[in-house]
Amino acid sequence: MPTPVRITSSHWVLIVALLAAALACYLLVAPYMNSIVMAFILSLLIFPIHQWFDNHLPKHRNISSLLSCVTLTVIIVMPLLLVFGAIVQQGTVFAQNMYQWGSQGGIQELLAHPWVKSGLAFVNHYLPFETIEPKEIAQRVGEFATTTGSTLVSFSAKLLGDATNFILHFFLMLFVLFFLLRDHDKIIRSLRHILPLSRSQEDRLLDQIEKVSKSAVMGSFLTAIAQGLAGGFGMWLAGFPGLFWGTIMGFASFIPVVGTALVWIPATIYLLLTGQFGWATFLLIWSVAVVGSIDNLLRPFLMQGSAGMNTLLIFFSLLGGIQLFGLIGLIYGPLIFAITIVLFNLYEEEFQQFLDKQDNS
Rank of each mutant, 00 (worst) to 15 (best):
T3W: 01
S10E: 04
I15A: 11
I15D: 05
A17V: 09
L18G: 15
A21Y: 09
A24C: 11
C25Q: 13
Y26H: 13
Y26F: 15
L28W: 13
V29R: 10
V29I: 15
A30E: 14
S35R: 12
F40S: 14
I41N: 08
I46A: 08
H50C: 03
W52C: 04
D54I: 00
N55R: 13
H60L: 12
R61T: 11
N62I: 07
S64E: 02
L66R: 08
L67D: 06
C69T: 05
T71H: 03
T71W: 07
T73W: 07
T73H: 12
V74F: 11
V74D: 04
P79H: 09
A86P: 00
V88N: 03
N97S: 15
Y99E: 15
Q100K: 15
S103V: 12
Q108M: 04
Q108A: 09
A112Q: 10
H113M: 01
S118Q: 12
A121T: 06
N124M: 01
L127A: 02
E130Y: 12
I137S: 14
Q139H: 14
F144T: 10
T148W: 04
V153K: 07
L159I: 03
G161I: 04
D162A: 05
A163E: 01
T164A: 12
T164I: 07
N165P: 01
I167A: 14
F171K: 11
M173D: 07
D183K: 09
I188K: 08
H193D: 10
P196S: 05
L197S: 05
L197V: 07
D203I: 02
L205C: 02
D207K: 11
D207E: 09
I209Q: 03
I209G: 07
K211C: 07
V217E: 09
M218C: 10
F233A: 14
M235S: 02
G239E: 08
F240M: 03
L243G: 08
L243M: 08
W245L: 13
G246C: 04
T247Y: 12
I248P: 06
A252E: 12
G259H: 07
A261V: 02
L262A: 02
I265R: 00
I265F: 00
T268Y: 00
Y270G: 00
Y270S: 03
T274D: 08
G278W: 14
W279H: 14
T281V: 15
L283S: 11
L284F: 15
W286M: 07
S287L: 11
S287W: 09
S293Q: 13
D295R: 07
D295E: 11
L297Y: 04
R299C: 05
P300F: 01
G305D: 04
G308Q: 06
I314A: 01
F316Q: 01
G320S: 02
G320K: 03
G321S: 04
L327H: 01
L327P: 00
I331V: 10
I331R: 00
G333S: 04
G333E: 02
P334V: 01
F337C: 05
F337M: 08
A338Y: 03
A338M: 02
I341P: 06
L343Q: 07
L346T: 06
E349F: 07
F351Y: 15
Q352E: 14
F354R: 12
F354I: 09
D356A: 12
K357T: 14
K357F: 13
D359S: 13
D359T: 13
D359A: 15
